[in-house]
Design a binder for these strands. Structure first.
Lengths: 146, 146
DNA sequence: CTCAGTGCAAAGGATTTGCATGCCG
DNA sequence: CGGCATGCAAATCCTTTGCACTGAG
């Protein structure tokens, strides 16, 4: 997705909630868009120094509510954020148990269809209303294998 | 798995690390064993009142290091714990975005084989050493659908 | 003018750690 | 006895909130 298209989409969703698409928010969205993986708040701010943590969290909350970003859980308790699926596309994660980093991995249609089937079955059995799934691979990234 | 067998297994792993299988640890393991889902620390303690949070966390850390329990991430930032896979068996999770509860779901051999294949491919491509995966279904539990 | 956005500082909540004591092996 | 285990309290870490101020529409 082109950057202009990305910003247009995000701006549209924010305006629909009477919220502005400010410079800080733009930079957060762009940072997430450029990174091929979910980022922690400090990582997001590493490019936009001088922005206080509280502002970052507040903006992320707004973007979260607007359905622009999504929170991702790793193995540590550090929160990570990525663009929503309908913007970044559906994918899976490689979670490193060494350093906690999470990388993106594309999915495959075959895998998706099997998972959807599994979701339907599980949902029926336990009365859940399932609308999404997450498939994460747990292991060690290249750096942590040393 | 029978309770005696469970305790024998856990006790063995702890003794291998020069650590005792105390009453509190037994109660934690039994609580997790009985529950069909990952529990938060307060939930674990609900049956063993009078045990301080710090002790629970310390014991969970020991059990974590001994490979007896595993930490599970939901959608909220509340940590949840369950028995390790080789004790509780491999399964998946139903995560409720409403209340944060996580329920267990059994897996299927077909699903597993497809996932293992996916894991191999992803691992090769990005240089990860993958040894496990997690497949979680996200939605709303029966209670939260009202 | 008005209301959302921003900074700074303080508050919160979950989890960890220091230290002295208790207890099993 | 020696070392792990435990309680309590204080400390941390990440995240959220209160409040006053700035700024865009």
């Amino acid at each position: 997705m082109k950057v202009e298209e990305l910003h247009a989409k995000v701006g549209y969703r924010l305006s629909g909630r009477a919220q502005r698409y400010t410079e800080v928010r733009r930079s957060i969205v762009e940072r997430l868009s450029r990174s091929g993986r979910p980022l922690t708040v400090p990582e997001i701010l590493s490019s936009a120094k001088s922005v206080p943590l509280s502002s970052a969290y507040r903006n992320l909350t707004v973007l979260l509510e607007a359905g622009v970003v999504r929170r991702v859980a790793g193995t540590d308790d550090q929160g990570r954020f990525e663009l929503a699926e309908d913007i970044a596309g559906h994918h899976h994660h490689l979670v490193c148990e060494g350093c906690g980093t999470v990388d993106d991995v594309p999915s495959s249609t075959r895998l998706e269809s099997v998972m959807d089937e599994a979701a339907r079955l599980a949902a029926e059995e336990q009365g859940y209303d399932v609308w999404s799934h997450r498939f994460d691979l747990i292991g060690l990234c290249r750096q942590c294998q040393g």
